[in-house]
Structure formats: C-alpha cells, structure tokens
Write a protein that binds this DNA or RNA. Structure first.
Length: 103
DNA sequence: GTCGTGACTAGCC
DNA sequence: CGGCTAGCCACGA
C-alpha cells in the first residue's frame, strides 16, 4: 500500500529508532521540518499501523505518556517492556534516559 | 475547495 | 497533579 510522502518520511524517522529507545511525535515532526505537524504524524502512523516493519510502539507523547496504538495501548506497553523500557500507569519511568533525540 | 477527524501539545485554571 | 481549551497538520469524503 502506497503511503503519502509525509507518511513515508515518518516511517523513515521510525527506522532511525534503535531497540530500547523511544522518541516523541514532536521530535519526528521536527525531523520532518514541520514542528507543528505532530498531529499529522500520529495520524499517518494510525493509518499505517500494519506489521513490525515500523516500530510505531517506540513513538510516545512528549509528556512521557504512552499515547495510543492501533493494536491497543496495552500491546504497546508490552512491546516497550520487551525492549527493557519500564512503564508505570501508561507512563514511561526513565523517559529522559531512553528518549532518542532526532537530528 | 471545505469539513470532520485523530496514536498531539502547550497553556490555563 | 488533573481536567479543559484552543491551535496545529495531513488525509479522506
């Protein structure tokens, strides 16, 4: 399925995130030269939520919360914990430590 | 071309 | 700390 140019860029940013690290919608938006398009970023991911080819579960909110996930935030939390990321009540514990700053 | 929607964010109370 | 509001962007109908 073909993605929009914007969506493709979002996936590209996603691939830059190594295991055990996470980033925020805002960082991706900035990386795409559109710091205020964080909404569009989430929108793009939601519409392309298929398969682990894109680690969308490594993208969280700027306040450290999980945010959402097409397969359910519970699933997202499980995947994150699998990456050694500690989560408590939909919130990342060591958020600042695993946060990956793009560009 | 316009409207509604959403995995968001920052500000204010 | 928690809840509400307004602003922002891309996409589909």
């Amino acid at each position: 399925m073909a993605l929009s140019k914007f969506g493709n860029s979002v996936l590209a940013a996603l691939k830059l995130i190594p295991p055990g690290k996470v980033t925020t919608y805002q960082e991706i938006a900035k990386y795409l030269k559109r710091p205020k398009a964080y909404r569009a970023v989430g929108n793009a991911l939601n519409k392309n939520s298929y398969v682990p080819k894109m680690p969308c579960h490594r993208v969280i909110r700027s306040n450290g919360q999980i945010g959402g996930y097409a397969f359910g935030k519970t699933k997202k939390i499980k995947l994150l914990e699998q990456e050694k990321i500690n989560i408590k009540q939909d919130r990342i514990i060591n958020f600042s430590k695993i946060f990956l700053k793009l560009k």
